[in-house]
Design a protein around this nucleic acid. Structure first.
Lengths: 172, 172
DNA sequence: GCCCAACGACTGCTTCAGCAACTATAACCG
DNA sequence: CGGTTATAGTTGCTGAAGCAGTCGTTGGGC
């Protein structure tokens, strides 16, 4: 099996992608025990860790892997299920906030312990602390280089756009 | 922003997922300059590095992130575009092979240099060799733990199932 | 040899996400 | 002011992917 397509660079990407796919599958299985899809969990988590448990639709789109129309529909579903509500923005009548309801917070609190356990079982617990730190350090650098800050809106990064990354860092 | 939802474990997953999403976006953009989607590229790469540039549909599904029905349709499209052909399996009339055509190999060879360059630019080139090795080592362990060997078929790992992982390792 | 369970591929149906078009509101600028 | 431009959100349409069901094929038990 030594041919041109076994480049170490391809292997590297394969590792990252397969690790992602594997974790993704595990997480999805646990989440749907609590009636949440992966996307819904990401949405509700992002909201729950934002001030007031709310975010404007556009900001939510920027923080997730979704387009604005994607966000519209996820919030539709979650509102239908009682996990979120839309709330008009008082200062800008174009905007609306997605706000987590009490039921949404409760659902999240039911889901989270199991989720954290899954992370430990399949990810962080697989490595000793030094190796984990090294892994995270590498990932952070790759993330900082490659992560598209402008999922929603412009094709490239606009200077005033602020993204809150998963580690809390705020980047232009 | 210090609240319950800023667990370091969540942050760790966030880093991995964002790194994946970022690379995914970069790669997708470059691939589609050559008329390939990410899935199509994965399919043709897996085939090209298999003996005879071919694989049975089921094996292809097991090696990719797709279900068997997903593979049927991707191969449909790629066959329509002349990149692959289906070939009957002489020893088992249920099976068919997906085989890369000359045009498919040419397309892959056109695409690959740019793709490798993207990997270097956004991933491997972001880290010095030691850090990269540490990152890959960590990823390999997470992958080995979490990667679902049985995407297609059974819900859990069946003992005789063989998966060729992206680093060439064959696992039960 | 015959039957039945297992297997490989394909298809109908559904869900989900993105793009592009559209509406309403805001901001800017003479 | 009035008009142009940009922004926030939604919606119609399309393509992609999974599940479950189907059909033909295979192989094992008897």
């Amino acid at each position: 099996m030594t041919n041109v397509f076994d480049d170490p660079r391809i292997t590297a990407v394969g590792l990252l992608f397969e690790a992602h796919a594997g974790l993704s599958t595990r997480f999805t299985a646990q989440l749907e025990e609590h009636g949440l899809s992966a996307v819904e969990f990401e949405v509700i988590t992002r909201l729950a860790r934002s001030p007031g448990n709310q975010l404007r639709m556009t900001d939510l789109a920027a923080q997730t892997s979704l387009s604005t129309s994607g966000v519209t529909r996820v919030v539709d579903r979650m509102e239908r299920d009682g996990l979120l509500v839309r709330q008009a923005c008082p200062s800008d009548r174009r905007s609306s906030y997605a706000v987590v309801t009490a039921a949404g917070m409760q659902r999240l609190n039911e889901t989270l312990p199991g989720h954290l356990q899954m992370i430990e079982q399949w990810f962080t617990g697989q490595l000793d602390p030094d190796a984990l730190a090294a892994l995270l350090d590498g990932l952070r650098r790759v993330r900082d280089a490659a992560h598209p800050c402008a999922t929603a809106g412009s094709d490239d990064v606009s200077p005033d756009q602020q993204i809150i990354a998963s580690d809390g860092a705020t980047r232009p």
